[in-house]
């Protein structure tokens, strides 16, 4: 297997506070990886760095072992094939659910192409398929702003899948979902791993257990432990800073 993403010695501080502190992490192609850690551990900041939203002060972030991700911006990372779902669900509130998906589809993103874009039957079918997958077909024509919190989470997952990215960065997908929905999300992510690389941040331990994958524990901006959930759960330090509370 080859390496999809690697962080090496990454540091980033905000006003002297080290949000990311000598973080090193390697994700294999097709891997499903859970990242856990207490509030403020730097999980979201790590995703910001990978997607070019935040520049690291030092360290190396490599995509496919070749492309330097510290030099790309948000759009650039998306075009490389990195898709992202945000901790706070962000959808285009004044546009329909369907349009939200349509704008996310993996299609040319130039001015010219979008100005003269004509929707096709294949595209409509793809949108319908995705809406079906995230169970939003019934509300396809609603304004996205009218959806419930859980539905917005699903819509964002749908938008993420529509992009068909190589790597999916998924920040707390289960927040606002029912237990049954949480399990469905875990199943969905497990099913797309392999074809895609998936990194999930989540606090919900049942969800993490259901993912049944390698777990990285982040604390104060660096990796505290890594391994199976049982392995990291047995780690004294992890229990102290995270699980014990």
């Amino acid at each position: 297997m080859s390496v999809q993403l690697s962080l090496d010695g990454v540091c980033r501080s905000f006003d002297g506070f080290k949000a990311i502190n000598n973080l090193s992490l390697t994700i294999e192609k097709g891997e499903l990886r859970a990242v856990i850690g207490p509030n403020g551990a730097g999980k979201t900041t790590m995703m910001d760095i990978i997607t070019g939203k935040t520049r690291p002060d030092e360290g190396e972030v490599l995509w496919n072992q070749t492309v330097d991700l510290t030099k790309t911006d948000e759009a650039g990372s998306a075009r490389l094939g990195i898709g992202r779902k945000f901790q706070k669900p962000t959808v285009f509130e004044t546009q329909s659910v369907k349009t939200n998906i349509a704008l996310s589809l993996k299609e040319p993103r130039t001015i010219w192409a979008t100005l003269f874009h004509r929707s096709s039957a294949a595209e409509d079918a793809r949108i319908a398929e995705l809406l079906d997958l995230v169970k939003l077909s019934a509300v396809a024509d609603w304004m996205a702003g009218d959806l419930s919190h859980g539905q917005k989470q699903w819509l964002e997952i749908g938008m993420l899948l529509a992009q068909d990215p190589e790597l999916l960065l998924v920040d707390e997908p289960a927040a606002g979902m029912t237990d049954a929905e949480t399990m469905r999300t875990a199943d969905l992510l497990r099913s797309i791993a392999g074809k895609h690389t998936v990194v999930v941040v989540e606090h919900d331990m049942d969800f993490v257990r259901a993912l049944n994958c390698r777990v990285t524990v982040l604390h104060q901006g660096h990796v505290l432990a890594e391994g199976s959930l049982d392995h990291v759960s047995a780690n004294e330090q992890v229990i102290e800073v995270y699980l014990g509370r």
């Binding site: 997607t51 939203k53 911006d73 948000e74 759009a75 998306a78 075009r79 898709g83 992202r84 945000f86 962000t90 959808v91 285009f92 509130e93 004044t94 546009q95 704008l103 996310s104 993103r109 938008m159 992009q163």
Partner: peptide
């Protein structure tokens, strides 16, 4: 319109 409502989200879509 997407840019108007959520500029940063639009960037992350590429």
């Amino acid at each position: 319109i997407a840019i108007r409502d959520s500029e940063s989200r639009t960037r992350f879509l590429g």
